[in-house]
Computed example of a mutant assay.
Amino acid sequence: MEYTKLGKTGMKVSRLALGTMNFGPRTSDEVAFQIMDRALELGINFFDTANVYGGWGGPGHGYTEEVIGRWFAQGEGRREKVVLATKFYNGMDNELDGPNDGAGVSAYKLYRNLEASLKRLQTDHVELYQMHHIDHSINWKEIFAAYENMITQGKIYYAGSSNFGARHLAYAEAASDQRDFLGLVSEQHLYNLLERLPELELLPTAKDLGMSVLVWSPLEGGLLAANALNTTSGRRSERVEALTQYGRQQLQRYADLCAELGETEQDVALAWLLNKSDITIPIIGPRTVEQLESAVHALDIHLSIDVMNQLDDIFPGPGGSAPEAYAW
């Protein structure tokens, strides 16, 4: 396993993060325990979750954190070996919070949601506490004061964001500088061969600010996985049906290139991210131990400049960063 520092911090994290969104809705507790144990054996020390995981067709919001908490409770150094990240923003169907249970970011939500997550996770702290989405009415003085308070108490080590725009990262950096606060150390964002808009503003901004970029949905919901065009099951087949003729041609060209390389589509998609200097960590979301073990192979794949160029030809991005991508 390879390791890197999380943004401008000195904390080392694995180049692959274990995403846990499937724990509950698509993966049983028993298999989830096996996946987490195997992840540690493979050297993956960075686990990502969120307070709402477990809902959206699963047992209920918060269930995934409970699964991780029960796994931690088995002891044998499990909690000590994990760099744990969770998130808050969405409502949790908590009647006690009344109107404050809706989506958004505030000191109230940070305090209440953090305490609830710590209880479910059966731990006294999380290393990275992320805002799950931008709140366009966010008060940076309020939210950074709350983060600083929880960091002082040792309940949070670092602050992070998810699904922010480049301008939001800049606003946050300016606000944290005024407070002499470390600020956001990472941004978790949608990025893959099929979704390359972040190359315009988000990726260069994060790099300039010394922030790590954590990538969610590196396989674009399975479209970049093996046999995507042949599947007849679930959500992925619906997305394939919605593809244009051009989109199907892209995926076929991609499958042909991966076959030439002797690698699976999912491994090449992960390797592409790992070969990019502005990407810190792809987040993988295995449903089985076998999927987890397969994903780790991507660390061993070196993509030549020629192959990277071929991938750019199949999945053309915006042409680089703004404004050069579209203006002189």
Rank of each mutant, 00 (worst) to 15 (best):
N139D: 15
A166N: 06
A146V: 05
A166W: 10
M150N: 05
G165K: 06
T86H: 07
E95Y: 01
T123K: 06
A103K: 13
N94Q: 14
Y111D: 13
K87F: 05
I156N: 03
S137Y: 13
T64K: 08
D135Q: 12
S106V: 07
S117Q: 11
V83S: 03
G98E: 06
V126G: 10
G75C: 02
I143P: 05
I134W: 13
D93N: 05
A107Q: 02
G57Y: 09
W140C: 08
W71G: 01
L121Y: 00
F88Y: 15
R78C: 04
A85P: 03
L114C: 01
A159M: 07
P99W: 10
I134C: 14
N139A: 15
G102F: 06
N113D: 14
Y108S: 03
H168W: 15
N149W: 11
A116R: 13
S137P: 11
T64S: 10
N149A: 10
P59C: 08
M150K: 07
E65Y: 01
G98M: 01
Y63K: 02
A166Y: 12
L110P: 01
M92H: 08
K155T: 01
T123W: 08
W56K: 11
L114I: 04
S162C: 15
D124R: 03
G62L: 00
P99M: 07
E80R: 08
F164D: 00
A85M: 05
L114V: 08
F144W: 03
A145K: 14
L121M: 09
L169M: 02
Y63Q: 10
L118Y: 04
T152V: 13
E76V: 06
R70C: 13
I156F: 10
I68F: 11
L118P: 06
N100T: 03
Y157D: 02
Y129F: 15
G102E: 14
A146F: 01
W56G: 02
H133L: 08
E80Q: 10
N94D: 13
W140M: 10
P59T: 14
S137A: 15
F88P: 07
D135H: 12
A159T: 04
N149H: 14
L118M: 04
Y108K: 12
F88H: 10
I134K: 09
H133I: 00
V126Y: 05
E148K: 09
A172I: 15
N139L: 12
H133M: 05
L118T: 09
R112N: 04
W71F: 03
Y111F: 09
N113S: 11
G91M: 05
N100W: 09
N100V: 00
L169V: 01
R112M: 01
D124T: 04
A107V: 05
G160V: 09
K81S: 15
S106N: 04
